[in-house]
Design a binder for these strands. Sequence first.
RNA 1: CGGGGCGUGGCGCAGUUUGGUAGCGCACCUGGUUUGGGACCAGGGGGCCGGAGGUUCGAAUCCUCUCGCCCCGACCA
Length: 571
Amino acid sequence: MRFSTMLLPTLKETPADADVISQKLMVRAGMIRKVAAGIYDLLPLGVRVIRNVEKIIREEMNRSGAQEILMPTVLPAELWSESGRWEEYGAELLRLKDRHGRDFCLGPTHEEAVTDIVRRDVKSYKGLPLNLYQIQGKFRDEIRPRFGLMRGREFIMKDAYSFHATDESAEEEYVKMRDTYSRIFERCGLTFRAVEADAGNIGGNFSHEFMVMADTGEDAIAVCDTCKYAANLERAEIRPYEAKESGEDASTNEVDTVTTPGVKCIEEVSVFLDVSKETLIKTLIYNTDAGPVAALVRGDAELNELKLKRVLGAEFVELADDKTVEEITGAPVGFAGPVGLKIRIVADHAIRGMVDSVAGANEANTHLLNVNQGRDFEAEYGDLRNGAEGDGCPRCAGTLSVCRGIEVGHIFKLGTKYSVSMGANFLDENGKAQPMIMGCYGIGVGRVAAAAIEQNHDEAGIVWPAPLSPFDVEILPIKIADLEVRKAAFELYTELTEAGLDCLIDDRKERAGVKFKDADLIGIPLRVTLGDRNLKEGNVEFKDRGTGEVRLVAVADAAEEVLKSIRGAGQ
RNA sequence: CGGGGCGUGGCGCAGUUUGGUAGCGCACCUGGUUUGGGACCAGGGGGCCGGAGGUUCGAAUCCUCUCGCCCCGACCA
């Protein structure tokens, strides 16, 4: 491809509305252009990268026996009503009507659509297992699209769905997909980690998220330093606090009240009473579908609402408003404490180990000292708090550390939710009708590209992992007007192209500096520079975009050297 | 949806407080000088100032209403 004829509009300046590196660089490198919030054009360079990701996904999915299909983006409401999601899905589902007033939606995911395919054409256990996938545009009317391709409303996703006669078969497929995903992300040249995710109502160890490690990632991940445990922080289990022997550390101090005028939050209390946050009990009043609840965590910890839900077995929890807090505790917000509360109290494991702690007195401007669980209040215990650096691993004696990641893939066992509601049954060996057991496996294609940039860039621009790079090599003739230079450059270009490489040749009539800057920005791993000086000596210059390493190669050997370095890179 | 901010040539911004009919840098076009890390000079094209309504002799600027976009919180690949 010739740079001069390609739609490759690079920008010197960063667009004002971009807020993550990958988005800035994609816009600057002329890969994408924003059309509306969360909606992007993919320009030629961007498409090349996306196609590379798709190619790897296809190859690995096919290798694992999955079959590619393509379902519609516009789906009829009836399908969604069958599964109940027409009502459940909410505003994220973009609904529309056709000219006859019939209801449709833009598919945000395709469980209903595939289930419909399979229930019509698969009637016997002999047709199972089956894994169908597609790579297709999806639309989710996100509340707040941001970060370019990382969280768009329209995005390209590879979604696969598997159907099974037995649990064992579904679980086998799950494991197979986990391996397939690992191969895919490895081939993309990404540093990633499969982490445990919430398995929801299915239960068991059958939901993993694939996280690309990057400081700018939206998700926090807890990783054990000794075993293989890794989980999304918001769902990470924490090793429960070791229960104290009864009598050990028992307090002999009586509960005491102290006046704390206007001192409300943990920070203020800690300063006012000159005690560490670890000796404070944080009491949060929640409204839940099972009535009001007091949730206790240590002063230095954060309550995790997902965990609270799980411990309570609740569907819905919401921090109570000021009025409710006052009604329940009899004091303004900021002075709640567990002593004397008449509502259900749940506490984080850490509370159990606290002695002579400080808590609100349920009375304005007052706190209690020397509060002890068991003696002064009773609570149910569970894992309630957000994990943090240094917490104990739930699986071994190791310690958890926290890092950030970008979720690029998610796999989980679906069970029979859709097969039951939509009647996707098969006949087993005994001629008995059974609902199929399903699994579901997604990869955000654009997100993979964005994650690759987040992970591989420098001050000057993108540094593509070779497998994703829009071109294999960039040929950069410095003085295109110089006949010798031009001739040598195009000869190399032709030779490499004929050898099957994707080459970009910067044949623009620009000065060297401009071309160099653009080359760095675009990030093709190998650059071959041809200048009149080196050429006089019979040389061209190879530059590695990642390491910055430069070496001279004889013109005559250039093509062969390029092929060697690219094919030798293990691609 | 709640809170904060912004809409002015393709991109980045100034001008708005104190109304007088639009400017800078980059990009683009022409010519010339340059030519190994975003050159310089000269000339040029391009904007009904997000939209609608209002106030006024006169509105980018003041008022009202709208639409869009961005940032901070609850969802997801």
